[in-house]
Amino acid sequence: MASTAGTAPVTTAPASDDSSRRRGLTGYVLLVPGVVWLALFFVIPFYSLVATSLYDPGGSVFSGYEMSYQFSNYWHAIQDYWEPLLRSLWYAGLATLICLVLGYVLAYAIAFKAGRWKNLMLVLVIAPFFTSFLVRTLSWKLILADGGLIVNSLQAVHLLGPDGRLLATPFAVICGIVYNFLPFMVLPLFASIDKIDHRLIEASSDLYANPFVGFWKVTWPLSLPGVVSGTLLTFIPAAGDYINAQLLGSPNQRMVGNVIQNLFTQANDYPAAGALSMILMILIVAMVLFYVRRAGTEELL
């Protein structure tokens, strides 16, 4: 960092931070345990996953697999499971969009309208999520159950047919995903919106922008970093989730997570499961890169 030291006084805090960093062995010593752990149990496993996805599908967990660079595993996985794969992306995308709308309203209300209740409201956003994910999802199952309050009232106003149901429909699964991942959206959005200088919004209204134009031209663009990280933090886990699909859906709402989990634990078809896992990862990475490029927020990492 010696080259930046000369310019440090001109620029602000982050650059001068660099020059105050100590050099020497200590830094490496502090890093080693964590890096070794991540290398052993995150990076190398990823390599095993790639290897597994290329094994000869003729083997089994017990007799062992042979490495035969079976790229056809990928092709077969797509042929057999394109439906749950697409469904995962579609459900996750739709849920992310709904989360964005709900989360934006909530984050905006906390940041700008809550006044001295700001901290309390922020705690209340996270509080429900201290209960187990599965227990919460099961309680949605009860709320949306046939003959339950919601289904009965929807039937009474004829929004739902007499034998219509909510459980085991895409609606229930998407609702569950929206519910479970909402805080991942609200917190980054709040962080972004809370930083916006209120005077900018006042200035826009002084210049005769109506509130909607003011929002669209000032607040929304300034909150974009929060929108990008919030949507990513919601979309990525949602696309891999299968708890909601399993507990609130039927086999018709099977997502790719259900399939991978079944292939690994029940069918013991490791090559297919590995290939499907890799396909999911590749799709997500591609979408994320494309999205971050388009949204133009490179400082995300």
Binding site: F42, I260, L301
Partner: peptide
């Protein structure tokens, strides 16, 4: 690369992380 190594586990879907770890343990 250190920042990337720390960021990646948070951006990987759990199902992928879990299955790759299982692949390692089995291998």
């Amino acid at each position: 690369s250190m920042n990337l190594l720390i960021f990646l586990p948070m951006a990987t879907p759990e199902i992928v992380m879990g299955s790759s770890l299982l692949a390692l343990f089995v291998a």
